Amino acid sequence: MSAAGSTLLGPAEVRSLAAELDLRPTKQRGQNFVIDANTVRRIVREAGVGPDDVVVEVGPGLGSLTLALLEVGARVVAVEIDPRLARLLPRTVAERAPGSADRLEVVTADALRVTELPGDQPTALVANLPYNVSVPVLIHLLTLLPSLERGLVMVQAEVADRLSAGPGSKAYGIPSVKAAWFADVRRAGAVGRQVFWPVPNVDSGLVAWTRREPPATTATREQVFAVVDAAFAQRRKGLRGALRTLAGSAERAEEALGRAGIDPLARGESLVVGDFARIAENLVEVLPA
Rank of each mutant, 00 (worst) to 15 (best):
L138N: 02
G261L: 11
T210N: 12
Q223L: 12
R15Q: 12
E116T: 13
R221F: 15
S164Y: 09
A233V: 02
K27V: 04
E251K: 10
V177L: 14
E57K: 02
L141A: 06
V126Q: 04
G189M: 03
F276W: 08
L206Y: 12
L69R: 00
L67Y: 02
V49F: 10
P122E: 09
G258R: 07
V72T: 10
S204Q: 01
E149V: 01
G189I: 00
P198M: 07
P60M: 12
R236S: 07
E80P: 03
L112H: 04
V44A: 15
L287M: 09
P200I: 01
P175G: 07
A219S: 12
G258I: 13
R193C: 13
H140C: 13
L152H: 08
G50M: 07
T217I: 12
G168L: 08
V114S: 10
L125G: 01
R45P: 10
R24K: 14
D52N: 08
G166H: 05
G258W: 09
G268M: 06
L21H: 08
A183R: 01
S2R: 00
A188C: 07
P288R: 11
R187M: 14
H140D: 09
A183K: 02
R278P: 03
D110L: 14
V77G: 03
I139H: 08
G274K: 01
E254G: 08
V79K: 02
S16Y: 12
L144H: 08
G173I: 04
P167H: 09
S134K: 00
S249H: 08
S270Y: 00
M154N: 05
E20Q: 00
E254H: 03
E13F: 05
E254L: 05
Y131E: 04
R259W: 09
P130K: 02
A4G: 02
P98M: 11
I262F: 03
V207R: 02
R113G: 14
P200E: 11
V106H: 07
L243K: 04
L17C: 03
E158F: 14
G168N: 08
V34L: 15
A219W: 09
V195T: 01
A266K: 01
T39C: 14
E95Y: 06
E95T: 09
E95G: 04
Y172A: 08
L88I: 06
I279H: 02
P167T: 04
D22M: 00
P98W: 03
G168S: 04
A109P: 02
D275A: 13
K27E: 11
K237M: 10
V224M: 15
L257W: 06
V106E: 04
Q156W: 13
A37G: 05
P146Y: 14
L239R: 03
G50I: 00
A233P: 03
L287R: 01
R267Q: 14
Y172E: 05
Q121T: 04
D229M: 09
Y131R: 01
D161K: 01
P167D: 12
A171C: 06
